[in-house]
Simulated assay, not measured.
Amino acid sequence: MKTMTAKEVETLLNEGQTLNMIDVREVDEVEAGKIPGVIHIPLGLVEFRMHELDKSKEYVMICRSGGRSGRAAQFLEGQGFNVINMTGGMLTWEGKVE
């Protein structure tokens, strides 16, 4: 599984790159703050909502600490998606939140 640190994700966003980011945290966690532009799909719904994703795109998976996003990334990778897990999750995020 490919990984990227929160700092690397922040740098790419600050450079103007468009990233397809999926936050797999629960609703209350996301309401407390999320990275601008992120798609919210709780971990328990990834399997049922993966039809909304495009296999030709790369997705950065995000959660609180990197564990749940790692599980989501492994699952989606097994389904043929190109995914990267953001290690450290939102606990290590220092960029903008909304």
Score class of each variant (00 low, 15 high):
G80T: 12
F48D: 13
I84V: 15
G66R: 09
G80Q: 15
R68V: 03
E15T: 12
K7F: 09
A73D: 13
V24T: 07
N14W: 06
D28K: 01
G70R: 05
G66W: 10
R64L: 08
G67L: 11
T3D: 05
L53I: 06
S69E: 02
D28Q: 03
N20E: 14
V46F: 02
I35C: 00
L76H: 11
G67S: 12
V60D: 12
A72Y: 08
L53V: 13
V83I: 12
E15Y: 00
K7I: 11
M90D: 09
G44P: 00
M1I: 05
K7M: 13
E29Q: 08
E31Y: 01
N82C: 10
C63Y: 04
L53H: 12
I35S: 01
A6F: 02
K55A: 07
E8M: 09
V30R: 02
T18H: 15
K2E: 15
R64T: 01
V46I: 14
I62L: 15
A73L: 05
E98F: 04
G16P: 08
G78T: 13
K34M: 10
P36Y: 00
S69H: 06
G89Q: 06
T87N: 02
P42K: 00
Y59W: 02
D23G: 09
G67A: 05
S69D: 05
E58K: 12
D54R: 02
D28W: 03
D28H: 01
I41P: 10
E52Q: 11
M86T: 03
